[in-house]
């Protein structure tokens, strides 16, 4: 949820045609300025020059962040360098021991790979299904609102509940869907087979997030100017061809941002689903990094290791975000 709303901005930017923001950010000067504090990237051409008012406006947000995010976060991360009991009554400074232990542990290495595969697969599945459904919704005239409402439903369901329902449906002993799979001759056993378990959590995580991508894609498709579509139709292009020639390029900014946001979702927000569906098992086959952080920090209360893992995760996520920002800026065509 956090981390996902910005996508609409893309719909927004793109829908406005050659938006001023895109134009401003694409000026070489603006790009350079972005590096200096108070640069002009993302600044309106018509802007105000006041020193105190903007700080006042920012104050509520920054104050909340300071009190409930930065101070706690720094205190939490500082534990990466200590060995401590849960109650904080004995603390030993151990330098980089926690990091060393992590980087040499086979369990941590395997978790990194699981995370990479999980994030990629989840991203691809979510986007592909959301795209098909959004395309279909854009085509149909009847019951469009109803379809949208129903497909949006998973968004309203707490992850805790969604996980329980999924685990049940696919349970090899009783799950109705597992019965179906077995009927089709598929040996389905997510309890013993790491691969099956991996598929299961990937689908469950995607299921919860499809609605998200879907609604942004629906909105983006609605914003495609009908005149363009009609012109193509006059030229004799069929609906599918039109979608690939016109629709897809027009919504490419939305797609790129959805990719970024799916990544944030897969990386940080899927622990509730993993917890309910597989608990990271069997044998670590679905142990993604964020679940490991949760498990080591919250269940095993190994605060040092958990903090060290968070530091590594944060660095990784920041690097990736920066890469994505650049990539999006350079390769997405905002001027279609």
């Amino acid at each position: 949820m956090q981390g996902s709303t910005s996508v609409s901005a893309l719909g927004a930017r793109h829908a406005s045609g050659a938006s001023s923001s895109a134009a401003a950010e694409r000026e070489p000067g603006a790009r350079k300025g972005a590096r200096a504090a108070g640069g002009t990237a993302g600044l309106k051409r018509a802007h105000y020059r006041e020193a105190r008012l903007p700080l006042l406006l920012l104050l509520p947000q920054l104050l909340v962040l300071l009190l409930f995010f930065f101070i706690p976060a720094i205190r939490a991360l500082a534990q990466a360098f200590v060995l401590t009991d849960p109650f904080g009554n004995s603390v030993q400074f151990v330098w980089f021991d926690n990091f060393r232990a992590l980087l040499t542990s086979p369990e941590y290495q395997s978790s990194v790979w699981v995370t990479i595969w999980f994030t990629l697969a989840q991203n691809a599945i979510t986007l592909a299904i959301a795209m098909v459904l959004a395309f279909a919704t854009d085509r149909v005239v009847r019951a469009r609102g109803l379809y949208r409402s129903v497909i949006l439903l998973p968004y309203a369901i707490a992850p805790v509940i969604a996980g329980i329902l999924w685990a049940f449906l696919f349970n090899p002993s009783v799950g109705p869907i597992a019965f179906l799979l077995k009927g089709m001759g598929i040996a389905w056993d997510p309890i013993r087979s790491g691969f099956d378990a991996f598929l299961l959590v990937t689908f469950a995580a995607s299921w919860k997030h499809i609605c998200y991508d879907y609604i942004f894609l629906v909105a983006a498709l609605l914003a495609v100017p009908p005149s363009l579509v009609e012109a193509a139709a006059v030229d004799g292009a069929g609906p599918l061809l039109r979608f690939f020639r016109i629709g897809l390029p027009m919504i490419s900014p939305t797609i790129f941002f959805l990719l970024a946001m799916n990544f944030v979702y897969g990386f940080f927000e899927t622990f509730a689903i993993i917890d309910a569906v597989t608990k990271g098992g069997p044998g670590g086959a679905t142990m993604i990094l964020v679940y490991k952080v949760y498990l080591d920090g919250f269940v095993h209360i190994d605060l040092g290791s958990s903090a060290a893992q968070s530091v590594l995760m944060m660095i990784f996520a920041l690097v990736l975000t920066m890469v994505q920002f650049r990539y999006v800026e350079r390769n997405v065509n905002y001027d279609v």
């Binding site: 105000y48 700080l55 406006l57 964020v290």
Partner: peptide, 28 residues
């Protein structure tokens, strides 16, 4: 404030806000 004002620390403020996405709640 960030879009309509030119002032010192503008980008700093923006990134301060943005970075809050990067640390899962369970840790802190």
């Amino acid at each position: 404030a960030i879009a309509y004002f030119r002032f010192r620390w503008r980008m700093v403020a923006f990134w301060l806000i943005f970075v809050s996405l990067m640390l899962p709640v369970e840790v802190r």
